[in-house]
Simulated assay, not measured.
Amino acid sequence: MSKLQRYIFLSLLTAAALILSIIEGMIPLPYIAPGAKLGLSNIITLTIVVVFGFKDALLVVILRCILLMLVATNPITFIYSIASGIMSTVVMCLGLKYFKRLSLIGISVLGAMTHNATQVTVAAILFETFNLYYYLPILSLVSIFTGCFVGYTTIFMSDNLSKTVLKLGREV
């Protein structure tokens, strides 16, 4: 895959992550835990971590957060999004590198838990109260289920990308 093809493909993945974030904001979820989401854009992030690596994944996360703020949210939401996106990407990359026995599902659950812990930490700092950490066990339970969903979907996507698009890119 040439450098130009790589940038074009990463641009498409950034657009896909942005669209998934916007769609996710429109999905009415049962009131299990306020702020709990499916993490659909993390499918793209973890796929990029697996296929392209840390730097590209971090670039896509930062671009997605900035674009999402400009299109659909506000600066306060951006603070939560950028901090948790960066931290979960770092943890997923470290997990992939150092925890070889963990599957992508386990890596995804680690990323989801890190995402929630970072958001609670940012909220605790912004609201100057640590009582919000009582909410973390509920979010951690939700992140197990969302992390499994994201992990399964990432396995499917990365397998299909390596068989189709990336294989075609090597032949050009």
Rank of each mutant, 00 (worst) to 15 (best):
58 L>M: 13
96 L>T: 07
106 G>C: 05
99 F>G: 03
69 M>E: 03
73 T>N: 12
72 A>F: 10
87 M>L: 14
92 M>G: 08
64 R>H: 03
55 K>V: 11
49 V>W: 02
87 M>F: 11
86 I>Q: 01
80 Y>C: 09
96 L>A: 12
74 N>A: 02
96 L>F: 14
60 V>L: 00
85 G>T: 04
97 K>Y: 08
73 T>F: 08
70 L>W: 09
59 L>M: 11
69 M>Y: 10
54 F>V: 01
68 L>E: 10
98 Y>P: 13
98 Y>T: 08
104 L>C: 04
53 G>S: 14
86 I>F: 01
93 C>N: 09
82 I>A: 07
78 F>A: 02
89 T>K: 03
98 Y>S: 04
72 A>D: 15
57 A>K: 05
56 D>V: 00
52 F>C: 05
47 T>G: 13
82 I>W: 04
57 A>Q: 06
57 A>W: 02
73 T>R: 14
47 T>A: 15
94 L>A: 14
72 A>M: 08
83 A>W: 05
103 S>Q: 08
57 A>M: 03
63 L>T: 03
102 L>S: 08
70 L>D: 10
83 A>T: 13
80 Y>V: 10
53 G>F: 12
58 L>I: 13
51 V>G: 00
90 V>P: 07
78 F>W: 08
89 T>L: 01
53 G>V: 03
60 V>S: 00
71 V>P: 09
101 R>A: 07
51 V>S: 01
79 I>H: 07
87 M>W: 02
100 K>R: 15
93 C>M: 09
90 V>M: 11
88 S>T: 15
57 A>L: 00
95 G>F: 14
67 L>P: 15
66 I>V: 05
49 V>Q: 07
63 L>V: 02
47 T>C: 07
90 V>H: 07
49 V>T: 04
51 V>Y: 04
63 L>W: 07
100 K>H: 11
71 V>E: 05
54 F>P: 00
68 L>N: 14
88 S>C: 14
54 F>K: 06
93 C>F: 14
70 L>M: 14
67 L>N: 15
83 A>E: 06
106 G>S: 04
53 G>N: 13
94 L>Q: 11
84 S>M: 04
